[in-house]
Design a protein around this nucleic acid. Structure first.
Lengths: 235, 235
DNA sequence: TTCTATGAAATTGTATACAATATTGCGCAC
DNA sequence: GTGCGCAATATTGTATACAATTTCATAGAA
């Protein structure tokens, strides 16, 4: 089937670039439309995006470096399946980085930053109301990322980005479904503290929020569904 | 001057793989044989390593993700030149990660780990005595990395690896040459604390060591030399 | 001199062809 | 029916050819 006519889901107006493919796949994984373990075949992807395998290959390499895709030599690329020990490692790392980052964010936040954070939250609510759990999860991750941006340290922000992305996979595999609401509560409290410029409290709130998330992980892995790439990535 | 520990030039016995090229270039950058700003042309590298540009390309992409190479579209790959703000960011990030990691390392270290750390230090001394400043610097970075390994959190170790690599570039650009000896002193003290299992002191020592490094940065950038790739990478 | 325009050369970006490896399906023995 | 071996197929790894873009040198005009 020819693809060139319309691109309903993603805005690949002319030709897809490695970066746009990376972003598209990254988003799909974040939103749990592509389950852990899903094979990302080079031929499939080059057909879907209408580019050569070379481009697809660099996109996959990029995702592999972001640790949300695993490339096995001579076998191909798969959506990563973090082990439970990796899951704990990721949250330990987040607990080292994000509380202090929230502290810094509280000191640097402008009014526009607060507005942005608030809008994130309301979007998150909207997604949940619409039953789009995947998108809500994505936005919740973006919220953490936004705080790192406010703290204005690109190096740390990049690391948080990777950790948040992996967290999305971890949640897909090890989550017990309840605590979606707690999340939202914790985020509200964080915004308040940051808006007040209360750095100490921001740091504490972030810390306990992460500990909550961490301890909400279930030890045994959920079975990973297998997806149909074309169906999911194209409209 | 042959370096006895690893293969004289680089161990590409048969054909170089993308990974071996990545490692080789990474090492060369760490040891300051390739200066910040040096152009890494695809043709040059494919000649040097005897592989196609495709392989070289994936190696360069990998280095770019490790942030020690910058790829500019349609212009090529260059050894990265961190700005002074990036330099500060990197050390801020290290100050968040490494002290707590040293703490964990002190609790988990085995006798074999202590031996390894000690051998690292003595190699470092040997390199300094031999006047090989670049190699000493590389080993000093590996020391920090080894501590992260002992703490046994691969996620954090990977992040530290990237930060240490960038630090090497930062030192090449912003260093005032004196404090090589202080480094060595601080490392000795750290080993001692870790060997004793004194987690609190290990954390403190690592913290102040990083602060020292951070404050030893000079604000204005040194001029970056331009190198001849073939001359440096081949014998 | 200094700046700009312009075209040749060099370099990177992309697609494709072929080689190496892994996967799949089938026939056959047990 | 189950397991094994082997050929057929599919997929990834690598090299190469061509297109697009940048770089460099040169010439000419203000």
């Amino acid at each position: 089937m020819t693809v060139t006519t319309s691109a309903p889901k993603s805005q690949r107006a002319r030709t897809a670039t490695a970066n746009s493919i990376t972003d598209d796949l990254s988003r799909a994984i974040h939103e749990h439309r592509l389950a852990p373990g899903t094979k990302l075949g080079e031929n499939d992807l080059s057909e879907i995006y209408g580019v050569s395998r070379a481009i697809v290959r660099t996109a996959l390499q990029s995702l592999a470096h972001h640790q949300i895709v695993e490339i096995q030599r001579n076998r191909g690329a798969f959506v990563a399946q973090p082990t439970s020990t990796e899951a704990h490692e990721v949250f330990e790392a987040r607990e080292l980085l994000e509380p202090r980052t929230a502290h810094a964010a509280a000191l640097k936040a402008q009014q526009s930053d607060i507005t942005l954070l608030t809008s994130h939250i309301s979007q998150e609510h909207a997604a949940l109301d619409a039953g789009d759990r995947g998108r809500a999860l994505y936005l919740s991750g973006q919220f953490h990322l936004e705080i790192a941006r406010i703290a204005d340290n690109k190096t740390i922000t990049d690391m948080v980005k990777v950790l948040v992305a992996r967290s999305s996979l971890i949640i897909a595999l090890y989550w017990q479904r309840e605590s979606a609401i707690c999340e939202s509560k914790a985020h509200h409290a964080l915004i308040e503290a940051i808006a007040k410029g209360d750095a100490g409290r921001s740091q504490e709130l972030m810390q306990s929020h992460l500990v909550d998330l961490h301890s909400a992980l279930n030890l045994h892995k959920m079975p990973a569904a297998v997806n149909n790439l074309k169906q999911i990535l194209m409209g």
